[in-house]
Amino acid sequence: MKKLALSIAITAAAIAAVAPAQARDNKMMMSIENAMNDNDARNRLGDSVKFYFGKQKTPAIAQKLSTDQTSQKTNSFGKTPEKACNWAFLSAMLRLQARAKELNADAVVNIVSNYKNVENSSDTEFECHDGTMMTGVALKGDFVKLK
């Protein structure tokens, strides 16, 4: 009886190993405000660089320095989709902030979601892709000096 059970377990494991994986990739639109209120995001980002999403009104721009993008992922294991998306969003924002500082920019404007290079502009939401193992957020923006 033990040999039969062992044989069945080994066979099931072998089938599972060669069966095609069903990867989850759920596209979700998440609240920027909620993400900024999670994971101590506001304090971690500080106020040395200002961020403006979509078509939000900005102060006058003195100079556009560059356009750049970032794609950040986080492990989604053991996290709710919202928590994982907020972590990936914060990682992406921290990368935009670091790039702004490298360029001596004081703001990032026209920030859009840019998952797989498909732009999705919103003043209030960002696009997140939540998967079985990883969750990702891609952002793109213009780095500027304000007047």
Results as ranks from 00 to 15, higher is better:
residue 4 L to C: 11
residue 8 I to N: 03
residue 9 A to R: 05
residue 10 I to K: 10
residue 14 A to K: 06
residue 15 I to T: 10
residue 18 V to P: 13
residue 20 P to M: 09
residue 21 A to E: 15
residue 23 A to F: 12
residue 24 R to C: 07
residue 25 D to H: 13
residue 29 M to Y: 10
residue 29 M to K: 11
residue 31 S to V: 10
residue 36 M to W: 03
residue 37 N to D: 11
residue 38 D to H: 13
residue 42 R to M: 13
residue 43 N to G: 12
residue 48 S to E: 14
residue 49 V to N: 06
residue 51 F to D: 00
residue 55 K to R: 14
residue 58 T to M: 07
residue 61 I to C: 04
residue 62 A to R: 13
residue 63 Q to S: 14
residue 64 K to Y: 11
residue 66 S to C: 10
residue 67 T to E: 06
residue 70 T to D: 03
residue 71 S to N: 15
residue 73 K to G: 15
residue 74 T to N: 12
residue 74 T to R: 06
residue 76 S to F: 08
residue 77 F to N: 11
residue 78 G to Q: 06
residue 79 K to Y: 12
residue 80 T to K: 07
residue 80 T to L: 05
residue 80 T to R: 06
residue 80 T to S: 10
residue 82 E to M: 11
residue 82 E to L: 13
residue 83 K to Q: 14
residue 83 K to F: 11
residue 85 C to P: 02
residue 86 N to L: 09
residue 89 F to R: 07
residue 90 L to C: 05
residue 92 A to P: 00
residue 97 Q to E: 08
residue 97 Q to I: 01
residue 100 A to V: 00
residue 101 K to I: 13
residue 104 N to K: 09
residue 105 A to Y: 04
residue 110 N to K: 02
residue 112 V to G: 01
residue 114 N to Q: 09
residue 115 Y to N: 10
residue 116 K to V: 03
residue 117 N to W: 04
residue 121 S to Q: 10
residue 124 T to C: 01
residue 126 F to Q: 07
residue 127 E to F: 04
residue 127 E to D: 07
residue 128 C to F: 01
residue 128 C to H: 02
residue 129 H to T: 10
residue 129 H to A: 08
residue 130 D to K: 12
residue 131 G to C: 05
residue 132 T to P: 10
residue 132 T to W: 07
residue 135 T to G: 06
residue 135 T to C: 05
residue 136 G to C: 05
residue 137 V to W: 01
residue 138 A to C: 01
residue 138 A to Q: 01
residue 139 L to N: 01
residue 140 K to N: 04
residue 140 K to P: 03
residue 142 D to E: 09
residue 142 D to G: 03
residue 143 F to G: 00
residue 144 V to Y: 01
residue 146 L to C: 01
